[in-house]
Design a protein around this nucleic acid. Structure first.
Lengths: 142, 142
DNA sequence: TACTATTACATAGTAAGCTATGCAATGTTA
DNA sequence: TAACATTGCATAGCTTACTATGTAATAGTA
């Protein structure tokens, strides 16, 4: 149980669960985080524009948006020029949790990396990015 | 999108999908891997004994075992001494894929780490383990 | 202009994770 | 030994990911 895959999977699950617990008071769940980050930067995007920012599949995003609408975080409105598309807008509630959510995420990041020096943290992130790059290479080649 | 959490989550998903593609010909899926590894080491365990080896929740394991039984990888038999428990046994099919599965997993491990030196790989695994340890600390304290 | 192709999004179905809870069997104790 | 507690496992319900496919609407072209 010491392969990179096993360890990385384990770490990812642990991180998601920590995030879930800490953001629960805000009324959001981990899967909504990337979408919220994007909308906090720029509101009123279409699903397609959002999709370019969030590194998940289109169908996953569509389902996530549906849950976010159900939860009162966003609303979807008719696109003014294209009846296929809809623009996605934060509600007051969706906007209101921005700062707390950012803070919580940064706090977790700090806590879990507390045992690594700055140099080690940078190395860890660098290695992670390089492995991600490698996988995308390998897979696009096959 | 450069937080440790985001990157690790992304990496984990990519790794799972690579594994999924490569082991599909064997008739197994990624979630079955840890259980198979444990059973290849020692067959006939109870669910509780397996649980101690696989780092997932009991309910997740129960569901995974049900799918593995459906897929013809294992059978569950009555426990000789405890009517609540059942022992879990690989089928011939479950045993037969062992070597290919090991090889596939090792192959992926090598490929995705190919851009890191041995030293970097060791450092990456070490950092990953340390972060995992830290999270388990933090969470058990809270 | 009428097909055809493409695009934007939604839906269906599955896997794999979680927590909470149920149920039957086993253990413990007054 | 009867009552209660604990244990082993299953089930329900949820999230979040995936692929495959459907459905309009729009764009492109013969």
């Amino acid at each position: 149980m010491n392969s990179a895959g096993y360890l990385v999977n384990n770490l990812a699950r642990l991180l998601v669960e920590v995030l879930r617990k800490r953001i629960a008071p805000l009324g959001i769940v981990p899967g909504q985080f990337p979408t919220l980050l994007a909308l906090w930067e720029k509101d009123g995007l279409t699903q397609k524009e959002l999709l370019a920012l969030v590194d998940i599949e289109q169908a996953t995003l569509a389902n996530t948006l549906t849950r976010m609408e159900r939860d009162g975080l966003i609303v979807r409105k008719e696109h003014p020029a294209d009846a296929r598309a809809r623009t996605i807008h934060l509600t007051a509630q969706g906007r209101s949790i921005r700062d707390s959510a950012y803070q919580t995420a940064m706090q977790i990041n700090e806590e879990v990396l507390a045992d690594l020096s700055d140099k080690e943290t940078q190395a860890f992130l660098d290695y992670t990015r390089r492995i991600i790059g490698k996988i995308k290479d390998v897979e696009s080649a096959s």
